[in-house]
Every structure is written in structure tokens, then in C-alpha cells.
Write a protein that binds this DNA or RNA. Structure first.
Lengths: 161, 161
DNA sequence: GGCTTATCGCTTGACACCTAACAGTCATAT
DNA sequence: ATATGACTGTTAGGTGTCAAGCGATAAGCC
């Protein structure tokens, strides 16, 4: 369905670039709420699932700051997400002898077991969502979005100055 | 820049569909933070700007629920956003004689003047962000995202049941 | 008229996120 | 050795969001 109709707009978009950007925003919204619905069945939020997922596929020890970089959120946000996960015994903060400032964050066995149940459904939904796209079209999409990100980051830097 | 590098991941994605979906998510994040940076200069949040923008281009009276549909947020969210905007005298809730349940939301003169300053910069950034895309590529992007949304909504409905 | 049902806006509580300020720890330079 | 600066994780305060539930109002039905 077109965005114009989806948002109950009376007039069509006059600017295809505007429409493209809003399509990204809207698609994110749809993906996000479908994800939230799935995760909630397991008592998880999106942020919590993303943290667990990152921890499962890490290939080296991650500090809270490292995790923040991967999830693109601030250290302060990571703290609160990990607090929730730790309270549920799904992750553990492991002290590092050499450096008492940092923790290494690890999945617990309980966390691993839970993720084992959620992840297949997550991947299933992921593939259902992109069912109408060929692999080549996926790659086209990725390329187009990368271009937008590159330019948007320039805009961001320009605004920061 | 590729998502793998951008997120400081050590291994490449093994699943192009997963990569595509995460690209949407990440692109939204970048667009959103660039937007937030711009709007903040005018004392606005993204949600507040979106509300003002919708109100400017409405072609009929909008209730809070109508506005919620266009912005794809719940009525509860609209209430708090409008509270903030009303406190700044940028919008007004106009009572409707025929139906005492509803308000019609209007831009005030002050709101219109403010938007007159923000909107050109918003559009400028929009075009900067999509500078590397031809109009045709924009349309391709839109089409690909529409397909993802359609399927994702099916997933959402399946999960709701 | 009187009843039910639906809709509207609002309130509350929970969550993720941000910014800013903080304290502890490490590294470095003086 | 000691002071400075950089880095890490935490806390506090505020925003936007949602879900669930409320009272008020409107619309439809008997």
C-alpha cells in the first residue's frame, strides 16, 4: 500500500525524495512494532533482545561501551537495559582484573536458552518480511540505504558545527 | 559505509535479508538523529515538528485521533505532544460545537511562523540526504520498502492472533 | 424515551532513550 | 610523586512512546 493511502493523506506526495525518506521512517515503524509483538511473548523488549542477540554473536569480550557502539545507543542506556536483563539473570557483568573500570558482559545459560527459543521466530519473521524481494533486490535496497546514510551523516556533521 | 563496519562487527552478515532489515533500522536511526539535531535548534522535538507539519498541510479539520493516524502514533502520544505544543502557544485545541468529545487541532499564528523557519531547512536536509539517488532510484526504494511493509503487516497480524 | 455500544480524549505506569553531571579508575606528563 | 586528563559505568531528570483503563459523549437499537 502506498504511503499516501496508508497515512490517510488526501493529496499525493509532490516530492519523491520526501516520500522516500518517509517510507524509510514508516517501514522502520512497522518492523519495530512487529518485532515488539514477538519479543513481548518472551517478556523481552526490543532493546533487551538486541542486547542478547549481540552478545550471542560476539567474537570477543565486549564492555558496556562496546555494546553501546554496536547497538548505537549511549552508555547510559546500556546500563539500564543491562540492569533489567541482569535482574532476570539473562546476562552477567563480569569484572575484569586488569581494569577495574570495565565489565565484560556475558550471556548466562538462562539467557542462551531463552534466545534459542526467540531467535528462530525472529529469523522466520525476517524472511517473511522480505519474501517479496529477491536477493538481488535486497542488495539494491542495502546499497540505496547506505547512500542515504552516508549523506545524512554529512548533514549531521554540518549541523553539529 | 557498510553496516558491518559501521557497527564495528567483526564478521560479515551471512544473511542478506537480515542485513537489509537492519539497514532499514539503522538508516532510520541516522535520519532521526539528524532530524532531532535540526529541530532542537528551534526548541522542537521530532514528534512536535511532525505534528506541526501535518497541521500545516491538512486540508480538512483534524481531531487528535486523525492526527494520530497520520503520525502513526496512539492517541495517548498525541495528547502529550499537543500539551507541549499548546503550552508554547504553537497549536490550539478548538472545541467543536456539534461534538463535545472532540477537538479540532489548529496551528496558531506563532506556530505557522515557526514552521516557516524550520521547514525550508528540513527540506534542504531531506534533499541533501537523497542527493546520491536519482528520482528513479527513489521510486525503486519506495517500491521495495512498500513490499516489506506489506509482508511485515501480515506478520504482525499473524502474531496478534 | 432508555439501553447498549462505540468513540474520544485523558490519566497512569512502564519502558527506552537522551543529556548532563558524577565518581572511580587508568594513563600520562610534569 | 603527583596532578592532569581520558575513559567507564552510574545516576538523575526529562521526553516520547505504548498499553490499559477511566469518564464523558455520541450513535444506534429496542
Amino acid at each position: 500500500m502506498s504511503l499516501q493511502h496508508e497515512l490517510d493523506l488526501d493529496l499525493p506526495f509532490e516530492d519523491v525524495r520526501h516520500e522516500a525518506v518517509l517510507n524509510v521512517v514508516r517501514t522502520m515503524g512497522v518492523l519495530s512494532s512487529a518485532g515488539a509483538l514477538l519479543f513481548r511473548r518472551f517478556g523481552l523488549t526490543e532493546a533487551q533482545f538486541n542486547a542478547l542477540f549481540s552478545l550471542k554473536y560476539k567474537d570477543r569480550d565486549l564492555t558496556q561501551s562496546d555494546l553501546g557502539k554496536r547497538l548505537v545507543v549511549t552508555r547510559a542506556s546500556i546500563t539500564s537495559v543491562l540492569d533489567k536483563l541482569e535482574a532476570k539473570h539473562l546476562v552477567a557483568r563480569v569484572s575484569v582484573p586488569d581494569n577495574r573500570r570495565i565489565y565484560h558482559v556475558e550471556l548466562t545459560e538462562k539467557g542462551r536458552v531463552l534466545l534459542e527459543k526467540v531467535e528462530p521466530l525472529y529469523r522466520e519473521n525476517l524472511h517473511a518480511a522480505t519474501k517479496d524481494l529477491s536477493e538481488k533486490q535486497c542488495r539494491t535496497l542495502i546499497q540505496l540505504l547506505e547512500r542515504i546514510r552516508a549523506r545524512t551523516q554529512e548533514v549531521h556533521e554540518a549541523l553539529s558545527r
